[in-house]
């Protein structure tokens, strides 16, 4: 942790976030493997009502990420290097290139950088903006690559202290995925709305 902290402090580049954001990001670092439970609600133009799923997110070090879904159906998506492998119960695994799922690439970039407490890596891929309300804070990450930004307009990470509570991914076509992390995951309502979830994330609701 101290190592990561020092690394974060010493590697500042022109594109790096403001010192305040740096300090916060550095404080978010966890040693790998780091796991957290999640509950996701996806609001999409192809759906009449949001799609809710839950499971566990795990950072296994470097660019290795695992996303396990327990409900509604068991499924594991593992990212290793450029390859994404999806394993679904009763089906043969399916894999595709990370470059075909830019959303996933962005997720990986932001997640690994946050869990690594690596502000400079985050600053490479995103424009970082920090917003604090007392104990609560929001990190808004906007992809610097215009092509990526067309697909993912921004990611907002909400947290309290040194704990991230939420990740909100806003896609270019208006679809949104909101992930409640850690203890907050248990608080996913059965019929969520964006407003309720945002309130949960930013600490406006208990």
């Amino acid at each position: 942790m101290t190592m990561l902290l020092m690394l974060a402090w010493t590697t500042s580049s022109p594109a790096a976030p403001a010192p305040d954001a740096n300090a916060l990001i550095a404080s978010l670092g966890r040693p790998a493997p780091a796991r957290t439970s999640f509950a996701e609600a996806r609001f999409s133009s192809v759906l009449d009502k949001p799609l809710v799923s839950s499971g566990e997110l795990a950072w296994l070090g470097q660019d290795q990420l695992e996303r396990r879904v327990d409900t509604p159906h068991k499924e594991t998506a593992a990212i290793a290097g450029d390859k994404v492998t999806q394993t679904r119960e009763g089906k043969s695994p399916r894999s595709f290139s990370l470059s075909r799922a830019p959303q996933l690439k962005v997720l990986l970039d932001s997640f690994v950088a946050l869990l690594g407490g690596d502000a400079s890596r985050l600053g490479e891929a995103f424009t970082v903006q920090l917003d604090r309300h007392g104990e609560h804070w929001s990190l808004a990450l906007t992809p610097t690559d215009a092509k990526v930004a067309k697909q993912i307009s921004r990611i907002v990470v909400d947290g309290q202290g040194t704990e991230p509570r939420c990740m909100r991914m806003e896609e270019g076509d208006g679809d949104t995925a909101i992930d409640l992390l850690g203890p907050l995951a248990a608080k996913m309502p059965s019929e969520p709305t964006r407003e309720v979830l945002v309130a949960l994330c930013t600490g406006a609701a208990p």
Partner: peptide, 20 residues
């Protein structure tokens, strides 16, 4: 049903445009 699972997976944004 499988597409619904896809929508809850990381592949969602890749498949979304194909879906209709």
């Amino acid at each position: 049903q499988q597409r619904l699972d896809d929508m809850a997976s990381p592949a969602a944004s890749m498949l979304k445009s194909l879906l209709p």
